[in-house]
Design a protein around this nucleic acid. Structure first.
Lengths: 105, 105
DNA sequence: CAGGCATATAACCGGGAAGGCATGTTGTGA
DNA sequence: TCACAACATGCCTTCCCGGTTATATGCCTG
């Protein structure tokens, strides 16, 4: 499972890409809108969108001459699932601490 | 907030580093043990551990000649918090779908 | 069908990061 | 104090990745 998650993290480990997602979180966006808001060249934005789409984070739809991009939630769910492994670790730690404090009383 | 999270993602977007965390999730480990299990040179492992520690994912403790590394849960909590933003989006989507289905009946 | 948008792709360049080797540092035991 | 063991660090090379410029593709309008 980690095998897939590594790629997802690599995709998110890029400031421009995370900014794109943050914008898309508010509403769907055309490429041009993203170019304006990010102050980046259009090819750069298109490349990042390609990476994000290959990783499943976004999907695109055609509207006349423009492509509208939208967030796709599944990869985020996978990440949350992966993180849960470590959350359990954290929970166990708290439980142990709690039991320890109970014993103290 | 995203500013900090990007760095965390960049750190996790590295197969060797994720493998190290997976090993540390089971139990604390010395550098030598990690070297054996990962089949990587010792300097490479040490460097990755440095990156992980700078990012707060692990901490180290001295035991005789060796340093024992352990997972530190806080950064994972931050990631979960960041992901929650997108989970809300997902939940809203489900809610809308549910309302829509209710209306259909 | 010609011309102009909106976007994708190609070719290229520069910086940065991961890995290996050699070496420095610190603690330990005789 | 000497030698060794466990790590850390510096240096070097290689490779990948993000950005820009230039060009191709596809779709609307006149």
């Amino acid at each position: 499972m980690s095998v897939a998650v590594v790629g997802a993290f690599a995709v998110l480990g890029e400031p421009s890409r995370l900014r794109i997602l943050d914008h898309l979180r508010g509403a769907e966006c055309s490429v041009g809108e993203l170019v304006d808001r990010l102050g980046m060249s259009q090819p750069a934005v298109s490349k990042h969108l390609r990476v994000l789409r290959d990783a499943g984070f976004v999907s695109s739809r055609v509207a006349a001459q423009q492509r509208i991009y939208r967030i796709e939630p599944e990869p985020f769910a996978e990440l949350e699932h992966w993180l849960a492994q470590y959350r359990r670790l954290w929970d166990r730690h708290l439980d142990a601490l709690e039991r320890h404090l109970d014993d103290q009383e």
